[in-house]
Computed example of a mutant assay.
Amino acid sequence: MQGIAGKVIVITGGYGVLCGAMTQALAKAGAKVAIIGSSQEKADAFAQTMKGEVLGFGASVLDKPALETVYQHILHTWGPCDILINGAGGNHPQGITDRPMMEVDDLTNDSVKTFFDLDPSGFNYVFELNFLGTLIPTQVFAKDMVGRKGCSIVNISSIASFKPLTKVSAYSGAKAAISNFTQWLAVHFAKTGIRVNAIAPGFFLADQNRSLLTNSDGSLTPRGQQIINQTPMGRFGSPEDLLSTLYWLLDEHSAFVTGVVIPVDGGFNAFAGV
């Protein structure tokens, strides 16, 4: 990776499965990496396992004053942020239907949660965590990027932003908003020297979806098997599969690349199913 050594990189959700792999790789490449997560204890514990310069911070991506405190700490320790990776996100049970497609009889079946049973509070949670959880950290950490060379933002979208996934309407809508916001920011910041791009992972096994896609014995659930059947490469992604795309987006040789959303999905988005 050209020019990563010595860069100050902030990663929200930085001790999660996917962004944790990014933290490890970037620290190994010589960057100074600050990870932000909701738990100070988990952030500290993860940072201590890393080789290189890694700091852990516990703060909500929705709490601007808390993020500004983190910003001041990083600024006084290492200097201004060069790269921001907005990796915090997630879903909520109240934004998920029981079935991919509703049947007429479901309307009178109290045991089936349909679209009409979804709680708006679940949607609010998902949109705040994913969308505002990208907007607010960007407001806090990107201001110092303005007018400086080699600065960029990478948002984490989802394959669900291209094709809304059945059952998870809140998550699909929120990630579509992230992709749209990435393009908006790329245009808005184009004359300031800040590049803004996004990675859209396909299906990767993580803490949030492991029980949905696999059984306790490691075998696939029906939904997990359906996903594998729709993925031409025939497997789930591993966190390391995201790294080459991240390296490319951050590399100084990609200085003319901004406003793109790159699927890393084993061909899922390209496959029509027939």
Rank of each mutant, 00 (worst) to 15 (best):
H188M: 14
I153Y: 12
H253P: 00
A170R: 04
A198P: 07
S238M: 12
H253W: 06
E41P: 01
I35Q: 09
K51H: 02
A170Q: 05
G87W: 04
N155Y: 06
S60F: 09
I194Y: 09
A34C: 10
I83T: 14
D265K: 10
N86M: 00
G30L: 11
M145D: 09
R210Y: 02
E53P: 08
W248H: 10
R223C: 03
L250Y: 01
V261C: 10
D119Q: 01
H76Q: 14
V126Y: 05
S169W: 02
H73T: 15
V154H: 03
P93D: 03
G237P: 09
G122D: 02
L220Y: 13
T192H: 14
F268W: 14
G37H: 09
I159R: 03
P120T: 03
G267E: 07
T12Q: 09
S254H: 10
A160M: 09
G173L: 05
M101R: 13
E252M: 08
G147R: 13
Q183I: 09
G95H: 02
A255F: 11
A200R: 03
S157P: 10
R195A: 08
S39V: 07
G266W: 03
T69R: 15
T166S: 14
Q225V: 05
D106K: 11
A142C: 15
V187S: 10
V260T: 15
Q94H: 04
P65K: 15
C81M: 10
G89V: 08
A270Q: 06
K163P: 04
I153W: 08
G20C: 08
A270P: 00
K28T: 04
N109R: 11
S254C: 08
A31D: 03
G150P: 04
Q2E: 05
G14T: 05
S111R: 12
Q2P: 00
S157C: 15
G13T: 02
N180I: 12
L205D: 07
